[in-house]
């Protein structure tokens, strides 16, 4: 059985008279130690999916259907107090911007030990020892000193290492990383990604990597889930999904990678932009931007179908794969 199983997740935001649906019947699962990439444009529902797993969707959003089964229990049914013992303990999360996620007025050490003490009954000195161990593990030089530093005394890459160390403190089963490297420059990006990959492997932690960067995802994950306008577009093993996409949207994303381009020619881009939640066209949400679209696409919402190792939500998946 999978460690984390999302089944038909529905997330709604009731706004006055209207109700916006941010996520429609999303399903995926994550095994122990597995690394899954969630890919999509801004607004596709990646972060909402992540926050709904932790039951931290901003009000007035709520999980309106489906199940989030973690370790045999449905998180969607737990109370906030019960969830508190899961968050940061069994499931950790890493955010995009390390400048923002650390509290500016507390030392690194305080922020680490208080996380440990929130979940374990341990003494200050034990907490400090574990925290320093973890700082060393994320390859922070002289962790003893850094323990007493304030976030503003550290560089961006250092801070993201601290954030990763905090996420690893309680030896969680799953880490959700929401664009962990977007705010960092490219060289640091590679370092941090490499570090996360090593740590997840060494500790057998499952990683859910949320990003819009296919290049990053393809290097780190084993499985990819592509979201579009709150629905699953395509899901499959990383290698075949990048090499042989079966959904026109995934195809567009892969074609838009600079590596796929002949130098000197204009970079490919998917025409148009993703619809906002209150303006999703009938039928397949991608149809206005899709070169394969026909009347059926404008009428019927495609259900995800199993084609080979992929799960594809497209009426023309076979044609796309062949094209």
């Amino acid at each position: 059985m999978a460690l984390l199983e999302i089944k038909n997740l529905e997330v709604q935001f009731p706004l006055g008279r209207k109700t916006l649906q941010a996520i429609h019947g999303l399903s995926f699962d994550l095994d122990k130690g597995e690394r899954l990439g969630i890919v999509g444009e801004s607004g596709a529902g990646k972060s909402v999916a992540a926050f709904s797993i932790l039951k931290l969707i901003a009000r007035p959003g709520r999980i309106s259907g489906g199940e989030v089964i973690f370790d045999g229990q449905d998180l969607a049914l737990l109370s906030q107090e019960e969830m508190r013992h899961i968050r940061g303990n069994r499931i950790s999360m890493i955010f995009q911007d390390p400048m923002m996620t650390l509290n500016p007025v507390l030392t690194v050490g305080t922020q680490m030990t208080e996380c440990l003490k929130a979940h374990r009954d341990i003494s200050d000195s034990d907490a400090k020892r574990i925290a320093i161990d973890k700082l060393a593990e994320v390859k922070i030089p002289s962790p003893q000193e850094r323990f007493g530093n304030y976030p503003h005394q550290l560089s961006g890459g250092m801070r993201q290492r601290v954030v990763i160390a905090i996420a690893l403190l309680t030896d969680p089963a799953v880490i959700i990383a929401d664009e962990p490297t977007t705010a960092l420059d490219v060289t640091i990006q590679a370092e941090i990604m490499g570090l996360m990959l090593d740590l997840c492997r060494d500790h057998g932690v499952a990683l859910m990597l949320i990003t819009h960067d296919l290049a990053v995802v393809s290097q780190v994950t084993q499985k990819i889930c592509v979201l579009y306008a709150g629905r699953l577009a395509e899901q499959g093993p990383t290698r075949t999904l990048i090499a042989a996409p079966k959904h026109p949207y995934t195809r567009g994303l892969v074609k838009a990678l600079p590596q796929q381009n002949v130098p000197g020619t204009r970079l490919y881009q998917i025409p148009g932009s993703m619809p906002t939640l209150d303006d999703v066209p009938p039928g397949c949400a991608f149809n206005p931007r899709c070169s394969f679209a026909d009347d059926r696409c404008r009428r019927e919402v495609p259900e995800p179908r199993q084609i080979g190792t992929h799960l594809v939500a497209c009426h023309h998946a076979e044609t796309v794969a062949a094209a």
Partner: peptide
Amino acid sequence: SKEYVDAARVIGLPRWRIMFRHVLPNTL
């Protein structure tokens, strides 16, 4: 609305602790 509050919630800290230890010092 700053991210460190989200981060503190994600860590699983109790509400009063986030209020008094994380938010309060930033309003001093």
